[in-house]
């Protein structure tokens, strides 16, 4: 019916655009994801074997080479202590990656559990849990993380706790809505009818069928966690180890902006590249797992 009403000319233009662009982009379209995977792989490599990639020891202070610009000897230049910025960035990748991944895991497990219980139990339990989530939602993420990090004191562990608590609401809401839709399907009724226990239904039937949206949100969540944690580190609430995190390094470089742009620029570039790559992979995963959205693209 609708195709009869459709003016042929309009349909023609739409299709023509598609035909003209699709073949050209089919391989170009995959380039960003390939690039992103390479960036992530390289960052993981830096985090596991920093000594293989760094050109010098990050803590070594060379008083003869203070604030040197980027060059062959010091790829990203040196800072005000004469430390090699490239090596600092390579070693700093470990903290960003650990915090990014760990806080998503913690946040997704806690948020996922709240969403799972709220969605399955319903009633008063659901109401109470979701009101609690509403309260957490009202406090914007960075503000909540900042307050918690300040209470707990600066350390990697505390940053993970702060960032993961601030991410709990989004996982809880996604999980709950997914559980609600899975719960209404016939095979759950069937399982209940044959007398399957609640725990069995919850963990064997509902959980496996509700995980894929959590996976997509979790991937993008790694990017968000890296941003929030480097923000905390920028404000001086990150780990206080010998090797500064990327945010801390960037914050230190701020004082030398007019004489040594490279100290603040390269750690920021590292954060941006890593988060961009994680987001590109997250988009790709969403296209794969959520055909409803991907067919619009």
């Amino acid at each position: 019916m609708s195709s009869q009403i459709t003016p042929a000319s309009v349909k023609g233009t739409v299709q023509k655009t598609k035909v003209r662009h699709a073949p050209k982009l089919s391989y170009v379209k995959k380039l960003p994801v390939i690039f992103a995977s390479m960036v992530v792989a390289f960052t993981v490599l830096c985090a596991i074997f920093p000594s293989l990639i760094a050109t010098s020891t990050p803590t070594e202070m060379d008083s003869t080479a203070l604030l040197q610009g980027p060059g062959i000897q010091h790829l990203f230049g040196t800072d005000h202590y004469g430390r090699d910025v490239f090596s600092l960035v390579v070693y700093g990748s470990r903290e960003s990656l650990i915090v990014g991944i760990a806080s998503v895991l913690v946040g997704a497990v806690i948020g996922g559990a709240i969403g799972l219980i709220a969605g399955y139990a319903g009633g008063v339990t659901e109401m109470l849990l979701m009101r609690f989530i509403d309260i957490l939602m009202t406090l914007p993420g960075i503000l909540l993380a900042l307050t918690i990090a300040a209470v707990l004191g600066p350390s990697t562990m505390n940053v993970i706790i702060a960032v993961s608590i601030s991410s709990v609401p989004s996982y809880a809401r996604i999980m709950r809505s997914q559980v609600l839709s899975v719960k209404s399907r016939t095979f759950i009724d069937a399982a209940q009818a044959v007398g399957t226990s609640h725990t069995h239904i919850l963990f064997r039937h509902i959980l496996p069928n509700s995980l894929s949206p959590l996976l997509v949100v979790g991937t993008v969540g790694v990017g968000v966690s890296i941003l929030v944690s480097s923000g905390l580190s920028f404000l001086g609430l990150g780990s206080q180890g010998e090797i500064p995190g990327w945010g801390q390094l960037l914050s230190d470089g701020r004082d030398y902006l007019t004489v040594a742009w490279w100290i603040a620029t390269f750690p920021g570039l590292a954060i941006t590249l890593l988060v961009l790559s994680v987001n590109l992979i997250g988009d790709e995963l969403r296209d794969i797992f959520d055909p409803k959205i991907s067919h619009k693209r």
């Binding site: 990017g223 941003l227 480097s230 923000g231 920028f234 945010g247 960037l250 914050s251 701020r254 902006l257 603040a264 620029t265 920021g268 570039l269 954060i271 941006t272 988060v275 961009l276 987001n279 590109l280 988009d283």
Partner: peptide, 16 residues
Amino acid sequence: LLGISMPTFWSGILLI
């Protein structure tokens, strides 16, 4: 995507 991925403290510093 780049806009979402850039930490504001970095884009701020680049703008400065």
